[in-house]
């Protein structure tokens, strides 16, 4: 084994420097890969445990969270029917026209693990970064949900900018990655090009909560100035390795 690869594995979770056998890799590497794939597949089908999440949100002092389900009737249907995952089953529990600056939807997406691990501390960092400056609407938790479901929630809440915290699809080595999608003046029918994304939030290896919250704040401020989010809104807050 090479000392260089051992050292470099500390700077990336990437499968670098695998044991080479002929033109391929060792049996141990093949079996490690299969195990990781099996775990990732199981994780996709894991439902979100809503109760501890809403309690933790309440404990942050953000008030009781509202829970909304998508129109997908099951995890299996959610995987095959993105159209149903983009629409809420019933918005009645969500308060209308609260008039806040920023709304937050926590969506399970494809990784309930990511939401369970990172949504609450991420939410705390977002609360802190806007404290005393911008107001937050009551938090909405959405199950079997895709990003665009947030457009319905955001329009109903009447918020200026919406943040959707969502579990990204689990990879082999990283199964707990959280993404944030920012949509200014959310309403049903918004296109992906009208959103900005901060991805790969999963400290310690991925992006940390405070760094992500700083980017969120810069993008929200930028969107309010520009009057829109999306491809014309550029994040000028940081360079790599900072």
């Amino acid at each position: 084994m090479s000392a260089t690869w051992d050292r470099l594995r500390a700077v990336t979770q990437s499968r670098i420097g695998q044991d080479r056998i002929g033109d391929t890799v060792s049996s141990a590497e093949v079996l490690r890969f299969r195990s990781a794939h099996a775990l990732a597949r199981d994780a996709v089908r894991e439902p979100l445990d809503v109760e501890p999440l809403t309690q933790a949100i309440d404990a942050l002092g953000l008030g009781p969270a509202v829970v909304v389900a998508s129109q997908a009737g099951s995890r299996e249907e959610y995987l095959r029917r993105p159209d149903l995952g983009r629409r809420p089953a019933d918005l009645a529990p969500v308060p209308a026209d609260v008039g806040a600056d920023v709304g937050v939807v926590i969506a399970d997406g494809l990784s309930t693990t990511a939401v369970a691990e990172h949504a609450v501390p991420m939410l705390a960092a977002i609360r802190d970064v806007f404290a005393g400056r911008l107001t937050l609407a009551p938090v909405v938790v959405a199950t079997d949900a895709r990003v665009a479901l947030g457009d319905h929630v955001g329009a109903h809440l009447g918020v200026t900018t919406l943040l959707v915290l969502i579990g990204e699809r689990p990879g082999l080595s990283v199964s707990d990655s959280l993404g944030i999608y920012l949509t200014h003046r959310p309403r049903p029918g918004r296109r992906d090009a009208e959103r900005n994304c901060i991805s790969n939030i999963h400290p310690p290896e991925g992006l940390g909560y405070e760094a992500a919250a700083r980017t969120v704040a810069a993008l929200v401020d930028g969107a309010r100035l520009l009057g829109e989010s999306g491809v014309r809104l550029k994040d000028s807050s940081h360079s790599i390795g900072s």
């Binding site: 979770q13 695998q18 990879g171 080595s173």
Partner: peptide, 18 residues
Amino acid sequence: TVPGADDVMLGYQSLSFH
């Protein structure tokens, strides 16, 4: 191609260098 067929940023499996 990506290291070990595992893209740790995009969360999917492509081909490996091998």
